[in-house]
Write a protein that binds this DNA or RNA. Structure first.
Length: 398
DNA sequence: TCTGGGGTCCTAGGACCC
DNA sequence: TCTGGGGTCCTAGGACCC
């Protein structure tokens, strides 16, 4: 197998620059919801040592001193730009596996006769021209190596955004120069335990003993080691599977203490998630709600809990899902805590066309369906939340 | 003062069955 | 006193990624 990873550079910042070219050359960061954390940085911002996912207040001083432009994230823009990028790649390569909002694997096996590096170099130029988004390409026989290759291509400008790991004469030297913590799949927990085993670099992990790895780690570690050797353990899967869960869990700007606010927030999240559910033609069998106090406030009492509410007949009907979210919230609520977050996960998803009806169902499915279709189409035409369901505790929306 | 949000995969252990 | 054992399914929670 020959695959390439296409990884967009500083994606959210690149999207912002595409919309507003005057940001070019300036240090730019994008902030999360509620302006809490840094979630994207331009190269100029990285050079100022602004870390990824750091709380904004810890870098506010640096930003002020260096005129860093701090932007509120616009995820609608990022999703649209991502679609443009993937569509462009789809026109350039026979098979594309979208792996995240800013990354895709490309199958090169079918076009082997051409030089893979030249193919990617050409694609990189076309992508930049048609979408305005710069990207880095890494070519390798496995996904793990392709990730590493794209990292090299990003690091050293002399590669022109394309690094080819295939038959690379100094492959092992390069792996020896890479900390094992920078390998895809190795997080901080594993890093610590690998270090204890004397495994410090990507090359160490490549050459590690299979049995020892299997004894000390879940199977994923062995796969990673094999992938570093060029043995494919993560297959190329161009057809996207449908979602297994849909989650909405933003934190509050100010802490919340009362049940009523938590319940109505959970209900709103459920309604929001249900839009995605219907857009993808899915129904949901369980609504999970979690509530959590602020874990950083060690001076305050801590509490967190999760509860499930099963839906008898899997549904995409917002009022039912909102009601389930309210019920789940009530199960776990404890007074006397300052809550920072209430999250909703729609789980046990299945295809809406294959859903089963209960024998003695009292629900009027076709009426529910018409209502949701009408609501979604009005909101699409006139803007989000032009109309939304009205909930009371006792009676579902009509 | 202020600490992201949306996902996936894996595993251990309990429940249950025969 | 002695109290099966193996398979499967489900779930919660951990780890990781972007």
């Amino acid at each position: 197998m020959i695959i390439a990873l296409c990884d967009c550079n500083n994606f959210f910042v690149s999207c912002e620059r595409r919309r507003d070219p005057s940001l070019e050359g300036l240090p730019v960061i994008v902030l999360s919801h509620n302006d809490g954390c840094v979630i994207a940085r331009s190269n100029e911002a990285k050079a100022l040592n602004i870390g990824m996912a750091v709380p904004f207040f810890t870098v506010r001083g640096i930003c002020k001193a260096h005129g860093v432009v701090a932007l509120k994230g616009d995820h609608t823009l990022y999703r649209q730009t991502s679609r443009d990028v993937m569509e462009c790649l789809g026109g350039l390569f026979p098979e594309v596996e979208v792996s995240s909002i800013d990354e895709a694997y490309l199958l090169l096996t079918g076009i082997q006769t051409l030089d893979p590096a030249r193919t990617c170099l050409g694609a990189r130029g076309k992508l930049l021209l048609s979408t305005g988004i710069p990207a880095s390409f890494g070519i390798a026989p496995t996904k793990t190596l392709a990730k590493i290759a794209s990292r090299f291509s990003k690091k050293d400008p002399s590669y022109n955004g394309v690094f080819n790991f295939l038959d690379h004469p100094a492959a092992d030297d390069l792996l020896a120069s890479l900390s094992v913590g920078d390998v895809w799949g190795i997080g901080s927990r594993s890093l610590e335990r690998l270090r204890q085993m004397g495994i410090r670099t990507a090359l160490d992990l490549k050459n590690a003993d299979d049995e020892k790895l299997l004894k000390r780690f879940p199977i994923g570690m062995l796969r990673t080691s094999h992938e570093l050797r060029g043995v494919c353990c993560h297959s190329f899967e161009p057809d996207p599977e449908s979602h297994k869960s849909i989650q909405i869990a933003p934190s509050f700007r100010k802490p919340v203490t009362d049940l009523e606010t938590l319940q109505s927030t959970a209900a709103e999240h459920a309604v929001e998630a249900a839009k995605t559910l219907r857009a993808e033609g899915l129904v949901c069998g369980v609504v999970q709600v979690s509530i959590q106090t602020n874990p950083f406030r060690k001076d305050l009492p801590q509490y967190e809990a999760t509860a499930d509410q099963r839906i008898e007949e899997p549904t995409d009907y917002s009022p039912l899902l909102a009601d389930a979210a309210r019920q789940a919230t009530e199960k776990i609520y404890k007074p006397g805590y300052a809550y920072r977050r209430v999250g909703v996960v729609l789980g046990d998803l299945s295809d809406s066309s294959s859903r089963q009806s209960l024998l003695f169902s009292t629900r009027d499915r076709s009426r529910e369906k018409k209502l949701m279709e009408a609501m979604d189409s009005i909101n699409r035409a006139l803007g989000d939340d032009t109309i939304k369901p009205w909930f009371t505790k006792e009676t579902p929306a009509e």
